[in-house]
Amino acid sequence: MIFTRKNLWQMLAMAAASVVLGLGANFVSREPLPLWRQPALAPTAATEVPVGEVDADFLLQAGHAPGTLLLDARAAAAYEAGHIPGALSLPLERFAAAFAELEPQLRTAGMLVLYCSDRACGDSPELARRLWAKGLKNLLLYSGGMEDWSGRGHAVEK
């Protein structure tokens, strides 16, 4: 017998303990996940929050204008592997901590331009939604993202 009755009970107990540990850890976490919704993937945001769209040419011309901040919404590892020159890393998965670090800069910036990997990625619209909720409303979305940027042969900073 592969599964004895004893095995089934023990496996059930382990599963139950894991549920308790997982939910408990999430409950005490500083950035708990909503149980029935995956924040970064939830249908975004572009419609909920009125955010203008910009393209690569805009970034080339205005991206380095004083007061304009470029924010990379991807994971820190992706940012380190290469990002648009001058962009700051504000990874969605550690939003609360990263936002706290950058908040002074974000509040004083005239314009925030957000991007993630490509048109399909939901991180920058979600970032827009969260920043909007924090009262930052001067947002622009570069939805072409890293793929569009490097696809056009523009410089990538590491």
Binding site: A15, S18, V19, L21, G22, L23, A25, N26, S29, E31, L33, P34, L35, W36, R37, Q38, P39, A40, L41, A42, A75, L92, E93
Partner: peptide, 27 residues
Amino acid sequence: HPGEFARIIANYAILPDHLVTLPALVL
């Protein structure tokens, strides 16, 4: 990093996106 793991699970496109959190926390 349960959040990142949830996104990886979602990326597998086996569970509907709104159900990925629980396995990401428990597994």
